Amino acid sequence: MTRYAGFKLLIVDDHAHNLFTLRTLIESQMDIVVLEATSGQEAIDLTHRHPDIDLIILDVQMPDMDGFETASMLKLRKRTRDIPVIFLTAAFKSEEFQQRGFAVGAVDYLLKPIDDNLLINKISTYFRLIEKERELNRTLEQVVVERTAELAEARQYLMNILDHMGEALLVLDPQGNIKLTNPAAQRMLGYRGEDLLGMSIGDVFEEEGDAEAGAFMGTWLEALIRTGALSRIEARFIASNGRRVPILFSRTAVKDGDGRISDIICIAKDMTGYARIEDDSAEADTSRRRGRQDENSVGGVRR
């Protein structure tokens, strides 16, 4: 038989003989810690000093504070409300008293004289349930720890990617307010990350060809809402010192399960130093002809 070492049981009875009998029986079958109380108040005091009590066997008929009152007091306290209580009684045997016992939180209501095997089996049953619950809690806690570690690792991995991106990243809410930036965006704009949070994208962005500078939340947003994404455009960031930074810019909408935009992801590449080449067919043909002429001549003399 399992001895349930490590469990703690409180027995409560105003008769010392009954306490001795119960203790002797239980300790002969189980390697558990048995605490004794001779009154309801003493039982409550013991639960204060021993918050790790696993089970209480409580006599109903006691002076001053009977078992029902004691159980009610225990259920009022958060620390003791979940401790299983088994009632024992020789006097209150009617169905009415049994219902009252369950109403105040008892898990069992046993009548005296008690069958020794029945009592030990009852105690064992509750210890097994407690054991399974604790094992389940340990398993769940381990799962939470492992999952938390996985999420932290994944978050760190993503943050490393964002931190080392060469392109500027800005995440906006549907109203165009900045929620997140990466270091490249902060360097490009000349702001600290915390200073950018909550700023309107129109404060740091102007699109080429717009009639009004900073018209970021205008026509393009309506198109973004319809299609979910826009192709890259040429635009400018307005740095903290007023400098215009030419950028190649893309915007993508992230939608929630209901199809509403939850975030707008903006990625910008700094185009400073890149020459802008117009696609002019005549000029391109002239350039190609000159190149062929150069290939066929040495020192200015044609071959």
Rank of each mutant, 00 (worst) to 15 (best):
S28V: 13
L76Q: 09
R79N: 10
A16K: 14
L22V: 08
H50N: 14
L58K: 04
T70I: 07
D59R: 01
Q29C: 14
D54P: 03
D14Q: 07
G40A: 02
I83N: 03
L19D: 02
A71D: 09
T47R: 05
D45W: 02
E69G: 00
T21P: 06
R81N: 13
S39H: 03
S39P: 01
D14A: 07
D31R: 12
K78F: 10
D82I: 05
D64G: 09
V33P: 09
Q41W: 10
D13P: 05
F20D: 13
M65E: 00
K78V: 11
P63K: 11
R81S: 13
H17M: 15
S72K: 12
E27W: 04
T21M: 14
R23H: 12
T38R: 14
Q61E: 13
Q41I: 12
A71Y: 08
I44S: 06
K78Q: 12
R23T: 14
I57Y: 04
I32V: 11
G67M: 06
V34D: 08
L22A: 14
G67A: 09
L22F: 10
I32P: 08
Q61C: 08
E42I: 13
I83E: 03
H48A: 10
V85Y: 00
L22Y: 08
Q41L: 10
D54T: 03
L88V: 04
D59P: 04
H17T: 15
E36Y: 13
R23E: 15
L74E: 01
M62D: 03
E36K: 15
K78W: 09
D31V: 09
E27P: 04
I86T: 00
I56M: 04
L19P: 05
H17N: 15
H48I: 12
A43Y: 04
I26M: 09
P51E: 08
P63A: 13
D31C: 08
E27R: 06
K75D: 02
I57P: 00
F68P: 06
P84G: 05
H15A: 11
I57K: 07
E69D: 04
D13H: 07
A71F: 10
D54M: 02
A37S: 08
E36F: 13
D64M: 10
V33H: 11
T24V: 14
I44Q: 07
M30S: 03
E42M: 14
F20E: 09
E36L: 15
F87P: 06
R49S: 12
V34S: 07
P51Q: 05
M65P: 02
H50Q: 15
R81D: 12
D14R: 06
L25G: 06
P51T: 09
I57G: 04
T80K: 03
N18T: 13
D45L: 05
H15I: 14
S72L: 11
D52S: 07
I26G: 05
D66V: 01
E42N: 12
M65H: 01
T70Q: 06
F68N: 09
I83P: 02
L55C: 02
L25I: 08
I53S: 02
L22K: 07
